[in-house]
Amino acid sequence: MINYLTDRRDQIVFWETPTLMQPLYGEALQKPEIGKHRFVIASDGVYVEAINPVLEVRLPVAKSGIKLPYGKIGAVGICLVNGKIPKRILQDICEKTFLCGEYEWAGLVVWDKIRKEYELYEPEVISFSAGHISYRNVLPDKYNLVMDLHSHGTVPAFFSKTDDQSDIGGFYIAGVVGNCDSGEPTFATRIVVNGHFFESPDFRKFFN
């Protein structure tokens, strides 16, 4: 399949992040390898696919200007493997961001592999102020990371260059809550897939 790649380094890149054809006639592709991502070329363009123990992702990367001779990709979006997150956790997140007011707050929504349930985990904070927060994002082994959230105090929600550096690795939903001192907070969301950033529905939509 990759015999045309004559350089071993190119072969390694392909195996680590393959680009595959969406079958037009044959059986559907098997799911990606856990924790890794791949690109799939379908009839209308390129998609990214990834899976980990708590998330499954299939999202558009680039639309083709012509119809390609490949199969249709099927449903796209972000799926929580263990179902939606309880609304009480979202309420807890909102309360904590509002109580912190002008100061930034951070919290991680995790899946407890032992208890088989979602939890809000507050990481150890190294430093924080009205303009930044630094925290340790190493989780206990019993947790899988689902969401990495933080607040922006009185500033609107957006992803800063610092956030871009923080999100350079990993595979999770990232969210920001802004204008926490007002009655009309703002929200920003994206999904991080091994250093790549993709658009995502508002993180509040993953709660029920």
Rank of each mutant, 00 (worst) to 15 (best):
Y172Q: 13
F171E: 00
A188F: 02
G169R: 13
I168Q: 15
A174C: 14
G183C: 08
C180A: 12
G195E: 06
V177I: 14
S182T: 15
T186H: 02
I173A: 10
V176N: 10
V176D: 03
G170W: 13
P185E: 07
T186V: 02
T189P: 01
G169F: 12
V192Q: 07
D164A: 15
N179C: 10
I173N: 05
D181C: 11
C180S: 12
A188L: 04
I173H: 06
Q165S: 14
V176E: 14
G195H: 05
Q165E: 15
G170S: 13
V193K: 02
V176K: 15
R190W: 01
T186P: 04
N194R: 09
F171R: 00
E184M: 05
G175H: 09
D181R: 09
F187W: 03
T189H: 03
G178H: 02
N194W: 02
N194L: 07
D164I: 11
I173Q: 05
E184F: 07
G175W: 09
G169H: 12
I173S: 07
F187R: 01
I168E: 15
P185W: 02
T189E: 01
V177L: 08
I191E: 07
V176P: 05
D167W: 05
V177T: 14
V193I: 15
V176M: 08
G170A: 12
A174P: 09
V176I: 15
F171D: 00
S166G: 04
G183T: 10
D167K: 09
V177F: 02
Y172R: 12
G175L: 09
G178E: 02
D167G: 05
G170N: 13
G175F: 10
I168V: 13
D181K: 08
R190V: 03
V193N: 03
